[in-house]
Lab assay of single mutants.
Amino acid sequence: LNLKQAKEEAIKELVDAGIAEKYIKLIANAKTVEGVWTLKDEILTFTV
């Protein structure tokens, strides 16, 4: 999975969960695949 694909998957998951745009922007700015997954997990843990 490359960075672009990771971001697309994570953003789709966050949108489906009804997460606010400000958190989705954090994913869009992530620099690594690991960073994308870590941010996604943290956002889902603390906002859902």
Rank of each mutant, 00 (worst) to 15 (best):
L1A: 09
L1E: 10
L1F: 10
L1G: 09
L1K: 10
L1I: 12
N2S: 13
N2L: 14
N2D: 13
N2F: 09
N2R: 12
L3Q: 01
L3W: 01
L3T: 03
L3D: 01
K4C: 10
K4M: 10
K4T: 09
K4Y: 08
K4W: 10
K4I: 09
Q5K: 14
Q5D: 07
Q5A: 10
Q5P: 01
Q5G: 05
A6Y: 04
A6N: 02
A6R: 02
A6M: 04
A6D: 01
A6G: 01
A6Q: 04
K7R: 07
K7E: 01
K7C: 05
K7T: 03
K7M: 14
K7F: 04
E8S: 08
E8G: 05
E8W: 08
E8H: 07
E8L: 11
E8R: 12
E9A: 14
E9C: 13
E9G: 06
E9P: 00
E9L: 14
E9T: 12
E9H: 12
E9Y: 10
A10M: 03
A10I: 04
A10P: 00
I11D: 00
I11G: 02
I11V: 07
K12R: 13
K12S: 06
E13H: 08
E13N: 06
E13C: 13
E13S: 07
E13K: 05
E13M: 14
E13W: 08
E13Q: 13
L14E: 00
L14M: 05
L14F: 03
L14T: 01
L14G: 00
V15C: 12
V15N: 08
V15W: 07
V15K: 13
V15P: 01
V15H: 11
D16K: 15
D16Q: 14
D16Y: 08
D16F: 12
A17C: 08
A17P: 01
A17D: 02
G18E: 03
G18K: 06
G18D: 04
G18A: 04
G18Q: 05
G18M: 05
I19M: 06
I19Y: 08
I19R: 02
I19D: 01
I19C: 10
I19L: 07
A20N: 09
A20V: 06
A20Y: 04
A20M: 06
A20Q: 10
A20F: 04
A20W: 04
E21S: 08
E21H: 09
E21N: 08
E21M: 10
E21V: 08
K22W: 12
K22L: 07
K22G: 07
K22N: 07
K22P: 06
K22Y: 13
Y23C: 09
Y23V: 03
Y23A: 03
Y23Q: 02
Y23G: 02
Y23E: 02
Y23K: 02
I24Y: 09
I24H: 07
K25W: 08
K25H: 09
K25C: 12
L26S: 04
L26A: 06
L26P: 02
L26F: 05
L26N: 03
L26M: 11
L26R: 06
I27M: 04
I27W: 00
A28M: 15
A28F: 11
A28E: 15
A28S: 10
A28I: 12
A28T: 09
N29W: 08
N29Q: 11
N29Y: 12
N29A: 12
N29F: 12
A30T: 04
A30D: 01
A30W: 02
A30H: 01
K31L: 10
K31C: 11
K31N: 08
K31Q: 13
T32N: 05
T32K: 02
T32C: 03
T32E: 03
V33N: 02
V33A: 04
V33T: 06
V33C: 05
V33G: 01
V33F: 05
E34C: 10
E34R: 05
E34S: 06
E34Y: 06
E34G: 05
G35E: 15
G35P: 00
G35K: 08
G35M: 15
G35R: 13
G35F: 07
G35D: 15
G35I: 12
V36L: 05
V36T: 03
V36A: 02
V36C: 02
W37V: 09
W37A: 11
W37R: 13
W37M: 14
T38H: 14
T38Q: 14
L39I: 10
L39R: 03
L39N: 02
L39A: 05
K40D: 01
K40E: 02
K40A: 06
D41A: 11
D41Q: 12
D41C: 13
D41P: 00
E42Q: 13
E42S: 08
E42M: 15
I43M: 05
I43C: 02
I43T: 01
L44P: 01
L44T: 04
L44N: 03
T45C: 14
T45S: 15
T45D: 11
T45F: 12
F46K: 15
F46C: 15
F46A: 13
F46L: 14
F46G: 12
F46E: 07
T47M: 15
T47R: 10
T47K: 10
T47C: 15
T47P: 10
V48L: 10
V48S: 13
V48W: 06
